[in-house]
Structures are given as structure tokens and as C-alpha cells.
């Protein structure tokens, strides 16, 4: 399947690409509306600052085509900032509007713990799902972030606890997103990406 990786200059595009190729998918870096429209599935990767992602999408005039594709039901996977972008806004850049596909705001993790939340952590799985098929609470995933989604959101499939619980995995219809980096999370991460490809197929 042709999987469009939204390419707006994010650092983790090559590693997402490599991980997908190993799973037999055909990743393609896409930075145009047309590329999004013709793809079989879309992945929005991201590391760094929320503002950089939102501004890059706007500069490339990708905001509307991306929202449109997601709302039309094209299989979507958001990674890290790609999860955060789905919500209405973020404390990291309060002046910018998120994609607004999901209701809610991205907030900073509590200062009672070392930030960024950096390293391998486990999930508390709230309900079974296709995205987490074959994965368990014993599996570790690699996180690198300071801001996160509210654990109480209804689309939350699994939470992670670091200072407080936050939304780590979500799935709603064909919209999937993870706060960690599956492309950097060894065999467990590869399994999750494989599950997404099956959802998208």
C-alpha cells in the first residue's frame, strides 16, 4: 500500500520511512495536497516544537487537505506531535490553532518529574483495539516529549503515566495516533506500525 508520510521537514521522516519499508509498505514523502488525496493512508510524524509543525503545514498549504482527508475517513496515523496536532490547541503555542479534529487541549506534563519525558515507558491499556493487537502492558515504547493529551479523552485507547496519566494511544474510526515513537521503539513499535497498516488495508 502507498503510505504518504507528510514531509514538512521533521527529523523523524527517514526513520518512519525505513520502519515502513521493513514491513513491506511503500512509503512516499508527500508535501502536496494531491499527494495526500491519492495516498492509501497518511502518516503525520513529528518531533520538536508544536508551532513548527502547525506553521509548516500552513506554509505548504497542507492544513485543509490534511483535515479533509482525515475527515473523509482516509486511514491516518499521527506520531508524537502528529497526535498533538489532532486536538484544538496546545499550551506549547497557545496562539496557534491545531487541526481541531478532536476536542481538547494539549497540556504540559507536571513539573514534579524530569522533563522532557525521555525514554522507554509502558502503557495502561483501557480497551482492546486493532491498533494494540498483540501488544501488552509489558511492552515498552520510546517517548520524547514535554506536552501531552488529556488521559480522560474518550478516544484514548491507552494511557501512560509520567508525573500524571496522559493519552498515549488513541483510535477513533480510522484515526490513529500515538504519543511515543513507534519507529524508534524496537519490535513493539514495529508491531504497532504493522497493525496500523492492517487497519489501513
Amino acid at each position: 500500500m502507498r503510505v504518504a508520510i507528510v514531509d514538512y521537514g521533521a527529523g523523524n521522516v527517514p526513520s518512519v520511512e525505513r520502519a515502513l519499508k521493513k514491513l513491506g509498505a511503500q512509503p512516499e514523502r508527500v508535501s502536496t495536497a494531491e499527494g495526500l488525496a491519492t495516498a492509501g493512508a497518511i502518516i503525520l510524524p513529528g518531533v520538536g516544537h508544536y508551532a513548527a509543525l502547525i506553521r509548516a503545514l500552513e506554509e505548504r498549504e497542507l492544513r485543509e487537505p490534511l483535515v479533509d482527508a482525515i475527515l473523509r475517513g482516509k486511514p491516518f496515523l499521527g506520531i508524537c506531535l502528529g497526535l498533538q496536532a489532532l486536538y484544538q490547541s496546545s499550551e506549547e503555542a497557545p496562539e496557534l490553532a491545531g487541526l481541531g479534529i478532536l476536542r481538547g487541549k494539549i497540556c504540559a506534563l507536571p513539573e514534579s518529574v524530569k522533563l522532557p519525558h525521555m525514554g522507554w515507558n509502558r502503557l495502561k491499556i483501557r480497551r482492546t483495539s486493532r491498533l494494540l493487537d498483540g501488544l501488552s502492558e509489558g511492552d515498552y515504547f520510546y517517548f520524547a516529549h514535554t506536552f501531552a493529551a488529556d488521559a480522560a479523552n474518550s478516544e484514548t485507547l491507552a494511557v501512560c503515566e509520567y508525573g500524571a496519566e496522559f493519552g498515549a494511544v488513541l483510535e477513533m474510526d480510522r484515526i490513529c495516533a500515538v504519543q511515543f515513537h513507534p519507529e524508534k521503539s524496537g519490535a513493539a513499535g514495529a508491531k504497532l506500525l504493522g497493525n496500523f497498516l492492517r487497519i489501513a488495508a
Partner: peptide, 8 residues
Amino acid sequence: SKEFGAQA
């Protein structure tokens, strides 16, 4: 840090 984020 501004360019890549503090985590990088």
C-alpha cells in the same frame, strides 16, 4: 533547542 526541540 528552538530548531529541533529540547528533546533533541
